[in-house]
C-alpha cells in the first residue's frame, strides 16, 4: 500500500524528517507515537502533499505510484485521506455541499458519473450514523463554531464518505471526551477492512485500546527509532519516553 524509503523533508530550510522509513501493507493499522515536535504532523502533511514541505531525498510509493509526483488534490482522489490535527473552518460552505463536491470529484477521477441527489443523501445518512453525527451539523458551515471534538468527529465522517485507501489520523483523539472517543474509534473500526490501511498518530495509549494497531512506532528527531506491537504503547504509557531516548543515545 505505502512504502516510504529514506525520506528527508525540510520546512523553511530546517530538516524535520530525516531518513525516514516505513512500510504499510493493505489492511494494516500502524500507530505512531512520539514527543511534541518530533515531526509526526510533518510526516502526515508531506504524505498529503502540502506545498511548503520540501522533499530533499527519498521516495514514497503509494499503490504502485510515485506519490511525490502528484499534487495534493490528486493524491486525495487517488485515496489518501488526512484527518487534520487542526481542521480549518470554511465560511459559507456546509458539510453537505463540501462532501458533494469532494465525493463527485473523486468519482469523476475514477470515471464515474456524479451521484444523484437521492443516492448522495442515502450515503450521507449511512455514514453519519457511523460516527453518530447529528444531521443539523451537516447543514452548518464546515467547522464554523464547532467544538474541538465536533471538528474531529466531522473529519472521521468525511473519511467515511470518501472511502480512502490510506487513512492518516493526526491526533484525532485529542480533544475528544470519553464517549466521543469511543464513538469515533468505533467508527474507524467499522471502516477497517482488508484493503484499507491506517496510520494513526496519537499521544495516548487509550485510543489504541479501541483501535487496536498491528504495529506501534516511536518517532524521535524526525525518524522512527523503535517499533513493536501494541504492548509497546502500554510500556510508553507507563514509563514515558526517557528509556527510548536513552536507548537511542547509546547507539
Amino acid at each position: 500500500m505505502l512504502s516510504i524509503k529514506n525520506l528527508t523533508v525540510a520546512v523553511n530550510g530546517k530538516e524535520i524528517l530525516k531518513d525516514f522509513n516505513l512500510e504499510i501493507k493493505a489492511g494494516e493499522v500502524h500507530a505512531i507515537m512520539g514527543p511534541n515536535g518530533t515531526g509526526k504532523s510533518t510526516l502526515a502533511a508531506t504524505l498529503a502533499g502540502k506545498e511548503d514541505y520540501e522533499v530533499l531525498s527519498g521516495e514514497v510509493i503509494f499503490k504502485g505510484k510515485n506519490l511525490l509526483e502528484m499534487d495534493a488534490d490528486e493524491r486525495a482522489r487517488e485515496g489518501v485521506f488526512l484527518a487534520f490535527q487542526y481542521p480549518v473552518e470554511i465560511p459559507g460552505v456546509s458539510t453537505t455541499n463540501f462532501m458533494k463536491a469532494a465525493v463527485n470529484a473523486k468519482r469523476k477521477h475514477n470515471g464515474l458519473e456524479p451521484l444523484d441527489a437521492k443516492d448522495f443523501l442515502k450515503m450521507m445518512n449511512e455514514k453519519s450514523q457511523l460516527v453518530e453525527i447529528k444531521r443539523e451539523f451537516l447543514s452548518r458551515s464546515i467547522n464554523e463554531g464547532f467544538s474541538g471534538g465536533e471538528k474531529k468527529r466531522n473529519e472521521i465522517f468525511q473519511m467515511a464518505m470518501l472511502e480512502p485507501s490510506l487513512c492518516i489520523l493526526d491526533e484525532t483523539d485529542s480533544g475528544l471526551d470519553i464517549d466521543a472517543l469511543r464513538i469515533v474509534a468505533n467508527g474507524v473500526n467499522k471502516l477497517r477492512n482488508a484493503e484499507r490501511s491506517f496510520l494513526v498518530i496519537t499521544h495516548y495509549q487509550r485510543l489504541l485500546n479501541y483501535i487496536v494497531p498491528d504495529f506501534v512506532h516511536v518517532m524521535f528527531g524526525g525518524r522512527i527509532v523503535k517499533s513493536g506491537g501494541k504492548e509497546l504503547a502500554l510500556k510508553l504509557e507507563a514509563e514515558g519516553y526517557d528509556w527510548v531516548k536513552e536507548e537511542v543515545e547509546m547507539i
Binding site: 486525495a76 482522489r77 480549518v88 463536491a101 470529484a105 473523486k106
Partner: peptide, 10 residues
C-alpha cells in the same frame, strides 16, 4: 490545502 486534501483543485 484542506480542500485539496479532499480532492478539490484550487
Amino acid at each position: 490545502f484542506y480542500c485539496n486534501q479532499r480532492g478539490l483543485t484550487d
